[in-house]
Design a protein around this nucleic acid. Structure first.
Length: 512
RNA sequence: GCCGUCAUCGUCUAGCCCGGUCUAGGACGCCAGGUUCUCAUCCUGGAAAUCAGGGGUUCGAAUCCCCUUGGCGGUACCA
């Protein structure tokens, strides 16, 4: 078999969709597993839906996820790019480079190519010029629907326009499209890697527009030409393309080209089982980055939506490296998968727990910097040392970094609380006062250099005896001002001796 | 409407190809208990799918066949 070559071809109509990331991942994994090449190309043939900056955003999201390409499109100086390949700067996107021997990898830079091949098809009688205007097209569609027929093009231009008329119209610069002449009564069959045999009658396929009147190709034409020219061996894409595949096969046949293998991935669904859409929450990879999810968690999560390594595999945590080894396209599911954030949160929490102190700090800092309680805190509380202490305590409680500090604001701000909160169960005022004073004595008696969670705990426990709640609850509230918080020893450790004692004094003050 | 495609706990899924080991397993979430005070973590246990429904084939079906239903996708000079 030829060396495996797969591609991920997003359209710059917005940001990288989480479903797009999964398609990219499966392509990447398939390439890695088979020692193949993973290519990124850009399908920017729809000028109406083009979004400024989308190409760059798409690339950087892919880079963030660590889905390195072997060929295709990269950001200059930012994407990890293969040095051995011939590299050129993109004509249409400054800062973007294209590397490889089969470029350009951006469709808007391949327009002449598409035109040439489309005309070749007209020459060989496999396609034809169509001069119908949108109004007429709309009208016949309406009529067909009204009479319960499939709303297909009526082939008016194929049947009625003479070669002379065509020449004339072409010469006078009439707007035209080029349509594929779809054969009648033909069963088109192909073997899909995930779905098995799929077949469709050509009579249900419209005479697809190949070249639009603005001189740009449609997806169908462009992708087939690219995939052939770029030596794509496997087309792995979303299920929404399944019904179009016969059109593509027809195109390959019309050109006399070898047909690649196809694999159609199940769709990602929202909780209402509809195709995942913007209004159901975040669908852009950027949103997840913004909300403090780790790439490892996203990759892990998305990999398991529609694929599973199989019998005997009961683990849930998989690194990219592991996935590269065990991925098998044949084990991709057929049914769509609902995108449920609960499990993502859990996965992300698992990865956060594994982070080193330095990594944790580095990832969390940008999120602290967006919080008011952090911005307004003293410089001492903004120090790396202090933040690392806070994070040591928080790591067990974090689902994502956007939550950082949120539930433990008392580490950064002055605390306010009612005196009754200090009381443990039905202890008397007297006992409460004793309890707090005992804490002052114990904490005050610990040396600064022995100010460690373990040590504080030992001393506190020793003083509390078997009535832990009596000592610990009032202390905890005195230090946090909150009903819920980490343990008093952890609070004291983070806050430091001086601040802890001060807060204890304030608590005592409330008792009058 | 037409064409295509799919169907196991609420969700992600194992099992299905090669029928019996499935009184259908795991994970998330949920509930309960435990783990030195509250929270979180962690641990233990629990509820949760008559395998969409119906009909076959078979000694035996989640697994094979047919039908029905439902979902989803497509039906653009969008990808």
């Amino acid at each position: 078999m030829d060396k495996v070559r797969v591609r991920f071809p997003p359209s710059p109509t917005g940001y990288l969709h989480i479903g797009g990331l999964r398609s990219a991942l499966y392509n990447y994994l398939f390439a890695k597993k088979n020692g193949g090449i993973f290519i990124l190309k850009i399908e920017d043939t729809d000028r109406k839906r083009f979004v400024e900056g989308a190409v760059e955003s798409l690339i950087s999201s892919l880079d963030w996820a660590g889905l390195d390409r072997d060929e295709g499109v990269f950001m200059k100086n930012h994407s990890p790019s293969p040095e051995s390949l011939k590299t050129t700067e993109s004509e249409n996107y400054p800062g973007v480079i294209e590397a490889g021997n089969f470029g350009p990898y951006i469709q808007s830079e391949r327009l002449d190519l598409y035109k040439k091949y489309a005309e070749e098809l007209v020459g060989s009688g496999k396609a034809y010029y169509c001069f119908c205007e949108q109004d007429r097209l709309d009208k016949i569609k309406e009529e067909k629907i009204a009479s319960k027929q499939a709303p297909m093009y009526d082939r008016y231009c194929l049947k009625n326009v003479t070669p002379e008329e065509i020449n004339e119209k072409l010469k006078s610069n009439c707007a035209y499209t080029i349509r594929l002449k779809v054969p009648n009564d033909e069963i088109i069959e192909f073997e899909d890697l995930v779905r098995g045999k799929v077949s469709i009658n050509s009579n249900t396929i419209d005479d697809q527009v190949l070249m639009k009147s603005d001189g740009f190709p449609t997806y169908h034409l462009a992708s087939v030409i690219d995939d052939h020219l770029m030596r794509t061996t496997h087309v792995i894409r979303g299920e929404e393309w399944l019904p179009s595949t016969p059109k593509h096969i027809l195109l390959y046949r019309a050109f006399g080209w070898e047909i690649p293998e196809f694999a159609h991935l199940p769709l990602l669904l929202s909780t209402d089982k509809k195709k995942l859409s913007k209004r159901m929450g975040d669908v852009a990879v950027e949103d997840y980055i913004k909300n403090g999810y780790l790439k490892e968690a996203i990759i892990n999560f998305v990999a398991l939506l529609g694929w599973h390594p199989g019998e005997g595999e009961t683990q849930e945590i998989y690194s990219l490296d592991e996935l590269e080894k065990i991925f098998d396209i044949k084990r991709v599911h057929k049914a769509g998968a609902v995108f449920d954030l609960k499990k993502l949160d859990w996965l992300n929490a698992q990865y956060i727990k594994k982070l080193s102190s330095d990594e944790l700090y580095e990832k969390a800092l940008p999120f602290f910097e967006q919080k008011d309680f952090y911005i307004n805190a003293s410089s001492e509380k903004k120090s790396e040392e202090y933040l690392k202490k806070v994070l040591t305590i928080e790591r067990e409680r974090l689902n994502n970094f956007s939550e950082v500090g949120e539930n433990n604001r008392f580490f950064f701000m002055d605390i306010e609380y009612g005196r009754e909160m200090l009381r443990w169960k039905d202890m008397s005022d007297e006992a409460l006062k004793d309890s707090l004073e005992k804490s002052v004595t114990v904490l005050g008696g610990i040396d600064g250099q022995d100010w460690q969670v373990k040590n504080i705990e030992e001393k506190l426990f020793a003083a509390a005896g078997d009535k832990k709640g009596d000592l610990l609850w009032p202390l905890r509230v005195a230090l946090s001002g909150a009903q819920k918080s980490p343990s008093p020893m952890e609070l004291a450790w983070v806050l430091g001796k001086e601040e802890s004692l001060l807060r204890l004094k304030n608590a005592l003050g409330k008792l009058g």
